[in-house]
Computed example of a mutant assay.
Amino acid sequence: MKENQEEQPFAVVLDEIFTADPLPIAQLYRLSDMQEEDAAHFWQGWTAVSDERRQAIVRHLADISEDNFVVDFAPLFIPSLQDSVADVRIAALDGLWDTTDLNLIAPLTEMMKSDPEERVRAAAAGSLGHYVLLAEWGQLPETILPELVGTMLATYENEETAVAVRRVLLEGLGAADNPRIGDLIAEAYENGDPATQLSAVFAMGNSADRRWTVTVLGEMESPYEDMRAEAARAAGAIGNSDFVPQLASLAYDEDLAVQTAAITALGQIGGDEVQRILANMLDDPEVEENEEILEVVEEALEESAMMAGDFNFADFPYGDPIDDL
């Protein structure tokens, strides 16, 4: 079936993508790495596609990009940053989340500052924060950081910047090695607004700074599920073994998001004690009956084992990867 679809003329494929009901998801892969002539046909027809259809297409392309590292839809996402529909612009930003294209920093900065939709400005701020994270990890040149962090700080401290945008900026700035960030995180945490406090805890995790250990431990006992989950995620990012006992308790939290965050965090922290906890969970009848949690535990155990150098691909449960190709 897949081979027959790939043999179809691109014009036929394009017509189906633009008009068929339901949207043929499998055909969207043909939009990756388009030849110049095919791309010209795409953009010629794109102008006539309805707002709702454009939104659906770009959203699906972003979702595919998240799960498939082989496809390349960036040539479609970049022009879509200027689409008239906010949801299309947001989907395009999501699709470009892992980009390392430094040429996009300027247009993303402009979107953060002046896009007419607040949620688009917030999404653009998140994209810029990802550039900060990649640069701090050494995956992008550190030379981009002074100007980028300076711009984000200036926008954050601008009183006219919407709270939603400031929250996302703080989350991204958490990763920056800048002496001002710690104070900004502390101020946001003490703000009293629950949403801003959530972003502050996210920024604590993004900083990977153990100075926040006591605060994060405290929030893992919060009566609010979203805060417990955020604190668990921060604990995994910080990676302090002091978090392990509390995370082990949250691994059985009544809230699924909290459970998932706690188990994932345990895998990120690793160590003999973590592997023992996760291995015991695999033998727990309650966990065995919950496929979703069971999968999270297995993934966390694999990550913990890989960190310790104990992971054996011969034990990989899905068969020989080479044979599957």
Score class of each variant (00 low, 15 high):
Tyr189Thr: 08
Ala200Gln: 12
Glu291Ala: 07
Val244Leu: 07
Asp98Pro: 00
Gln197His: 03
Met112Pro: 11
Glu7Asn: 15
Arg53Val: 03
Val71Tyr: 12
Gly172Arg: 07
Asp283Arg: 05
Leu31Asp: 14
Thr215Asn: 08
Glu160Ile: 04
Arg119Ala: 00
Leu282Ile: 09
Ala308Thr: 03
Tyr189Met: 06
Glu298Asn: 05
Arg233Gln: 13
Glu299Pro: 01
Val258Glu: 08
Ser241Gly: 00
Asp67Asn: 15
Arg228Met: 06
Gln268Met: 13
Gly45Arg: 01
Val244Thr: 10
Leu145His: 07
Thr264Pro: 00
Met111Ile: 15
Glu190Ile: 00
Met307Gln: 15
Asp72Met: 05
Leu96Ile: 08
Gly150Val: 06
Asp21Leu: 06
Asn206Val: 01
Asn103Cys: 04
Asn4Lys: 08
Phe316Leu: 05
Ala62Val: 11
Arg53Lys: 11
Gly182Trp: 06
Tyr224Ser: 05
Phe311Trp: 14
Asp33Gln: 12
Leu104His: 07
Lys2Thr: 09
Leu133Pro: 00
Leu145Met: 12
Asp177Leu: 05
Pro317Phe: 08
Leu198Gln: 14
Ala265Gly: 08
Asp242Pro: 00
Ala124Ile: 00
Pro116Glu: 05
Glu142Tyr: 02
Leu294Lys: 15
Thr196Met: 13
Ala186Glu: 15
Gln197Leu: 02
Thr109Lys: 01
Ser222Cys: 04
Asp72Trp: 10
Ala11Lys: 10
Glu291Val: 06
